[in-house]
Design a protein around this nucleic acid. Sequence first.
DNA 1: AATCTATTCAAGAAATGTATTGAATAGTTC
DNA 2: GAACTATTCAATACATTTCTTGAATAGATT
Lengths: 222, 222
Amino acid sequence: MNKRDFKDKVYSELAKITKALSNPHRLEIIELLAQGECSVEQIASQTNLSIANASQHLQLLKLSQLVEINRQGNFIYYRLANVNVFKAWKALRELGVERISAIEKIVRDFKQAKFSLESVSINQLLIKLQKGRVTILDVRPETEFVKGHIANAVSIPIEQLGKRLIELSKRNEIIAYCRGPFCVFADEAVALLTKKGYKAIRLEEGYPDWQLEGLPIEISFN
Amino acid sequence: MNKRDFKDKVYSELAKITKALSNPHRLEIIELLAQGECSVEQIASQTNLSIANASQHLQLLKLSQLVEINRQGNFIYYRLANVNVFKAWKALRELGVERISAIEKIVRDFKQAKFSLESVSINQLLIKLQKGRVTILDVRPETEFVKGHIANAVSIPIEQLGKRLIELSKRNEIIAYCRGPFCVFADEAVALLTKKGYKAIRLEEGYPDWQLEGLPIEISFN
DNA sequence: AATCTATTCAAGAAATGTATTGAATAGTTC
DNA sequence: GAACTATTCAATACATTTCTTGAATAGATT
């Protein structure tokens, strides 16, 4: 094998992995799995794909060793193969947000119509926590909260928030978080809470980013 | 715009950027540009592409805002748009090296035949530097050395190394480096130096990794 | 063993990505 | 401004990716 053949092989393997990531549905699946493992059906319904199509994408991700499976009863649960998968996803996300004005514009257009554009970063949240008087609110679906959440966070899934406001104290500032910067659950929560007279702001990043930093998390067992 | 449309748009933009990276030639081009800016012709010859084909790939990278151009006289020089492009490339590289045994195997098969598999990391090099008695040797083409290199490194391009051994002292340990983990210039250098009685080992990472860490570099002007 | 259920497979149509070729362009030099 | 040079464009052929549909499979439950 000469040097050129060697290079061609290495880069084409690398491209295979990158190709496995370079599809909108698979990127969304990666973000979803970063919240915790999911069955095929859950993935399909969360991402608006047919079951067969979701399965096909998952096969491809599995082939590229980006996800792994875990059979439990009738269900097959998929999860990210390891933390580097999320790291690569995050690097792409940051590249996207920074470089491609198209994404920024899409996000701004969509949010500006309905939501505040303000947010706090993980580091800013840590400072606020030291000072106290903060409620961390997880507005993802409860299944995701159960699989792992920021330590001491309260779970009120976004679609229940309207009915469960009473559980939140007006004396604390509320920091709402969700799956990540492209997820609007937290924006919806902040919009509702602000309207009802709460002081609320969203966390810029999502649960997987918090977890990646090695910050304290909790997992619910039942 | 509803929430589903919003997600579809965001992820498909993100996928576009990722697609721009997901081709073996474009990944190789990114790595090459991480060494410093290059003209189309240089890129084509380094990557074994036809000029027209290299140009086509570069157009695509430019369209995705991953690279930028700088016209000087007759030549158009391409460079990475910013450091996040290299960061994303690095994240993919690390994902690849760790997850895909195929890459590891290709690297091992190719190198084991000819080269030592030993290497030092950037951190290990920093420790060695404190102790002294180390020569840092840049074996990339001189054009790349000129565009930026590790501070105090000596430049002897790999194809001149045989004739210029006299410039190196046998009293120092020689740390050879090149473009990155997939580049074999440093391995070739270590093989030659070891054969000639020098104590030599390669740096695992490449110049762009060193630069990304914010470690001291030098740029030659002329 | 028969049935059920979640998931995967297989085939085909449509869309997208890639390399090659030769012509076109835009800027430089004479 | 004519000739030159580096780069890009355009058209084509070919390969790859993606979605849809309906059938197949593998494991769990009865």
